[in-house]
């Protein structure tokens, strides 16, 4: 077919203009949340992320569930298996993006708690729960690459090795969330992991009354302010976000109302959680809020 050269001359720049508009318009928050529920592994093949043009926002780099569990374990907290979320419930959470993300975080915290307590069989089961939740978030390849399951089995009695394996999965999931423009999923998952860790710490402290566990618990509660800020930076991403933000804000307010914390804030002093005391009433208020938030997440 013969094509007029003048037509060609116009068509090529027009295609370029269209491409420019398409590429600029593909970044909206709404589009992101719609995409994320149906993300597939074919999307994950891409190694690159495109550039956002907003240069005024402050971002938040949240710690991993593994590190929270590590700090908690160092305080001497014991292992109470009945506190873990039911590992068979993964299908129940495959209803929407928020449920998938928050329970991915909860299972990550349970896995980390098992790992640092050398409960390797339980660790394996919770790794499987994470893998199932991860699959629903498009993270299959993070759990399937480098023979992860086989390496985990082979090194199951070696704490350092299994922690390295799980850390490597964590890095892969972080990269995938970034590549898929699902940064908000990372923040929701972290909030799930943080809530689960808080719940475990509160219950373990109620049982043992170990002062060091209380110190570690207060240290984790201090994170609530950053969690709120991180959630607010993605508040339009999922319909459940306003309720979640309000629940974590409530915990943050209760933490700041602890007499010793309030005094340290007023004097602008560094908080020494090992020297601080907290009344039973103050602790009960926080404990009830954390339990209620966790219940809303896992049901």
């Amino acid at each position: 077919m013969k094509v007029n050269m003048n037509t060609k001359f116009l068509v090529i720049p027009l295609i370029a203009i269209s491409l420019a508009f398409v590429s600029c318009g593909g970044n909206s928050e709404g589009a992101k949340s719609k995409e994320s529920a149906s993300v597939s592994d074919t999307v994950l093949v891409s190694d690159t992320v495109s550039l956002s043009t907003d240069d005024n926002e402050v971002s938040y780099n949240l710690p991993s569930a593994l590190q929270i569990a590590y700090v908690f374990k160092k305080s001497g907290a014991g292992f109470v298996p009945s506190l873990l979320n039911d590992k068979e419930s993964t299908n129940k959470y495959n209803t929407n993006n928020y449920k998938r993300a928050v329970n991915f975080g909860i299972y990550s915290a349970d896995l980390a708690y098992c790992l640092f307590n050398k409960k390797y069989q339980e660790s394996k089961e919770y790794l499987k729960a994470c893998k199932n939740m991860g699959a629903s978030l498009g993270l299959n390849s993070a759990f399937e690459s480098d023979n992860m399951a086989q390496r985990f089995d082979k090194n199951i009695a070696n704490e350092d090795s299994v922690i390295k394996i799980v850390s490597s999965v964590q890095l892969k999931t972080d990269v995938m969330f970034e590549q898929n423009k699902q940064k908000h999923v990372t923040v929701i998952a972290f909030t799930g992991a943080w809530t689960e860790s808080m719940y475990i710490a509160l219950e373990v402290y109620a049982k043992d009354k170990n002062k060091k566990v209380l110190g570690s618990l207060l240290e984790q509660l201090l994170l609530s302010e950053t969690v709120v800020k991180a959630l607010k930076s993605h508040q339009a991403s999922e319909p459940e976000m306003p309720t979640l933000i309000s629940a974590v804000e409530n915990i943050n307010t209760q933490f700041n109302a602890i007499t010793d914390v309030k005094s340290a804030i007023e004097k602008d002093e560094e908080m020494d959680f090992n020297a601080m005391s907290i009344s039973d009433r103050e602790l009960k208020t926080i404990s009830e809020s954390v339990k209620s938030l966790r219940t809303s997440m896992i049901n």
Binding site: N56, V58, Y60, N61, P63, D174, E178
Partner: peptide
Amino acid sequence: KYDSSELTRILYKAKETVKEVEVPLFIG
């Protein structure tokens, strides 16, 4: 041990700008 990581998009403009990332840590 790996804990977390952050990729920040940097856009150079006609004026100097600052992008900030808050990193919470555990004191011990």
